[in-house]
Every structure is written in structure tokens, then in C-alpha cells.
Amino acid sequence: MLDTLLEIVNTVRNNKGLATLSDLKPSQDLRNDLGFDSLDLAELTVRIEKEHGIDIFADGFVLTVSDILAKLAK
């Protein structure tokens, strides 16, 4: 799960000119650690929805990598 999420995160980062990350940690903050703003998070959401069929922002806030993993585990 973390590997496919890393791939998606890197797609969004590369689209805005940020470097590819080699790994993800559950504690990482999507904004402060991964460098995403609200528009990037929208792109992240739709790319995750395509892969997993889940809209991670459909209910409540998602702040960290571990929040995403929790949504996908449901």
C-alpha cells in the first residue's frame, strides 16, 4: 500500500517540479513534509481514487500519510 501511495505522491510532486522521494513515513504531514497545497491535495485525491476507488476527502480532514493509509484500510 505504501509503495503505490509513494508512486502517486511522486507523480503529484513531479508535476509541480518537486524531487522524487525514495520513501514515505506514516507520520509525514502532507503539507509541511510533502510540500502539497490544497490544489495538490485535490490532484492526490483523484489519483488515489482512480487506483483504490476511495475519495479520501469525502468525509473529514486528512493531514498525514497515516490518515490516508487509514482511509484506504477501511
Partner: peptide, 9 residues
């Protein structure tokens, strides 16, 4: 529509 456009750049 915007989500679709984001997905496909």
C-alpha cells in the same frame, strides 16, 4: 470535471 482534468493534466 476539474478532478478529471487534474488526473489527466
Amino acid at each position: 470535471v476539474i478532478r478529471n482534468m487534474l488526473l489527466h493534466n
